Simulated scan of single mutants.
Amino acid sequence: MAEPTPGYELPLQLFAAFRAIIDAAHADLARHGHAGVKPLHGFVFQAIGARGTTAVELGARLGVSKQAAGKTIANLEKQGYVERAADPDDARRKLVRLTAKGLDVLAVSARSFDAVQARWAEAIGPERLAALHADLRTLAPGDHFRLDAPGWFGTDR
């Protein structure tokens, strides 16, 4: 019988797999003209969503301050990935929306994630990959699509 793997290795292995996926996606993004996009930006783009959001809402979704969200928005706006526009439902609010360039990042990264998944299916077999997905759904707490990782990784916790 094999020795049990030390518990501390599991989070490191999960993070290494996550890192491999993200690194592959960012290599693809760079090849498609998006070299300035950072892993944090994926969380930002998802938090902005198709309808847009405000800086306050974005900060809350990411688990960061309004000021941190504002800096990120300004940086992405300068690069052409987001734009600020008046909220059609409330003229006092400014919405942050993805531009066509920002939407292209989402499309490229989606194709990259599919390609990584296909490579993993080749490496371990489609049945084991499906089982891995099922196991992770079982083990991940309730809302496993949380976007607050930037705030969670922050030093002010």
Rank of each mutant, 00 (worst) to 15 (best):
Ala30Ile: 06
Arg31Thr: 00
Arg31Gly: 11
Gly33Met: 12
Gly36Glu: 11
Val37Ala: 05
Pro39Gly: 05
His41Ala: 05
His41Thr: 04
Gly42Val: 03
Phe43Val: 01
Val44Tyr: 08
Phe45Val: 04
Ala47Cys: 11
Ala47Ile: 01
Ile48Asp: 01
Ile48Met: 06
Gly49Tyr: 02
Gly49Leu: 01
Gly49Lys: 02
Ala50Tyr: 01
Ala50Pro: 00
Arg51Phe: 10
Arg51Asp: 10
Arg51Met: 15
Thr53Met: 04
Thr54Val: 14
Thr54Gln: 12
Thr54Lys: 08
Thr54Phe: 05
Ala55Trp: 01
Glu57Asp: 15
Leu58Met: 11
Gly59Cys: 10
Gly59Tyr: 12
Ala60Thr: 12
Ala60Lys: 13
Ala60Arg: 10
Leu62Gly: 01
Leu62Met: 09
Gly63Met: 06
Gly63Tyr: 02
Val64Trp: 04
Val64Asn: 04
Ser65Pro: 06
Lys66Trp: 02
Lys66Val: 03
Ala69Gly: 15
Gly70Val: 00
Lys71Arg: 15
Thr72Tyr: 04
Thr72His: 11
Asn75His: 13
Leu76Val: 06
Leu76Asp: 05
Lys78Phe: 04
Lys78Gln: 15
Gln79Asp: 15
Gly80Gln: 06
Gly80Glu: 09
Gly80Asp: 06
Tyr81Phe: 14
Tyr81Glu: 05
Val82Met: 08
Arg84Ser: 15
Arg84Leu: 15
